[in-house]
Design a protein around this nucleic acid. Sequence first.
DNA 1: GTCATAAAATACCAATCGGTAACAAAATGA
DNA 2: TCATTTTGTTACCGATTGGTATTTTATGAC
Lengths: 186, 186
Amino acid sequence: MNAEKVLDVAMTAYWQSDPADVSVNAICQMAGISKPSLYREFGSEDGLSRAVLDRYAEQVLSEMFVVLHGGTGLRETLAALIDFASDDPRMETGCLFYKMRAGKHRLGPETRARVEEIDAAAQAAYVAFLQSCRDAGDWPVGLSVEAGAKYLGEQIALAITQRASGEDKARIREMMTLALSVFTRP
Amino acid sequence: MNAEKVLDVAMTAYWQSDPADVSVNAICQMAGISKPSLYREFGSEDGLSRAVLDRYAEQVLSEMFVVLHGGTGLRETLAALIDFASDDPRMETGCLFYKMRAGKHRLGPETRARVEEIDAAAQAAYVAFLQSCRDAGDWPVGLSVEAGAKYLGEQIALAITQRASGEDKARIREMMTLALSVFTRP
DNA sequence: GTCATAAAATACCAATCGGTAACAAAATGA
DNA sequence: TCATTTTGTTACCGATTGGTATTTTATGAC
């Protein structure tokens, strides 16, 4: 009867299409459970989507953060981010977090708060990464670390969102490489 | 009864929030007309949103294309695009076309087809602009005109979408300037 | 066996969605 | 003046939404 199975089903469905396009009824049907069972476990649709987002964060997003803390140089890390965003098969249908963030106003309060939390954490991770690069002597550009971090995050989000809309992978890589070249230009 | 007033009301509502979040009922209420009147005029929700998009294209998007055909140099045109995307008060709540494009799968067939048409026209305009710059000797970078056009279009879309989410205008300008600097780098 | 308890499913709720049938009022043409 | 067509409204349709009250089913304890 397994709450984890329900979370997996819901995560897959939310991820593959869009949280706003998947109803509670549909999730119950796909998971083979009844609606009251789901509501007893998660309380509300907001509770379910929040639990799904938590699961997604620890199962998927965490690996993205690992890339940032790899300790390798600026160019290598950027290359790894480009690989991840434009080639990783897990991002073939986009990123659930970015889909939720794009439709933030349609989420319940709990889920929305969690989205903002994760967004802030990601921003902080980008800042830390760029700051370490600046400390190491890489990237001496006259741009604030915060602005660079925001830029980096938005370019990643853009690339992965384009994956979701079926854009050609090589094209995405080309554009993302171009966008991130501002970090490695003299 | 005035179909234009209805279109104005619908356009404003779609534009300010999101086409997917504004129901036909709400539009009728705001326009002060009954639902059958609206359906007699536009046939369906798809017909209405398509008419709204047409109106938006000729009233708003056309001015954006004018910037591209200004005939001025590369740097001046890019600066004008940055001004438009990050400062123009009409883009304060984002761009209706980009909102429709982002939620393409939620649109009816007519509206969706029109979105794709406009998207292709925009891409063609970007291509023509960059091609003319390349012909004029500006921008000798080793990047295909098509890829550059796609990149330019996506960066504009990103900037305006960020306007819609309440991002700080100066920040948006900073990031967009950074993104488009790849066109003016030696 | 019986009986209490916890879990699950059926069947329902009000609200809203896009869309229409039926009908009243007003304009129009002969 | 009368018939017709157009314009608009009220009131409804079936489907779907998130969410529950109620009833059935399974599980132990005795």
